[in-house]
Amino acid sequence: MSDSTHAEDVKKHVRIYIAVFGALAALTVVTVAVAYLHLSIVPALIVALFIASIKGSLVAAYFMHLISEKKVIFALLIFTVIFLAVLFVLTISSYHDQIGGHIVP
């Protein structure tokens, strides 16, 4: 939030916060309902992560004001997202590429 945020703007924000809360609650119900269908793992994973990503983005965008945040914050976050992806992708793909197959527990 910039310094120029005034009480009037904040009142508008409050309505948005309530709407976002409604969306988050609804999405939570949806993701639990889908889980009770007991889909096979791949579609279940896709649906669950898709809904979680939407919920996470709503919180970040509106509650954490990322949607109107300054460039310097984005610059920091872009690198974080890239390195997080690197950590996931390279660790998992190195699991799938092992000489002599996978570790049997």
């Binding site: 690198f79 390195f83 190195s94 092992q98």
Partner: peptide, 24 residues
Amino acid sequence: GFMSFIVWAHHMFITGMGTAISAF
């Protein structure tokens, strides 16, 4: 600084790493 995040498994070449990931 950027690249230093994507080279780490060169410490692990002899852990049974496959050729594709090792080439990367």
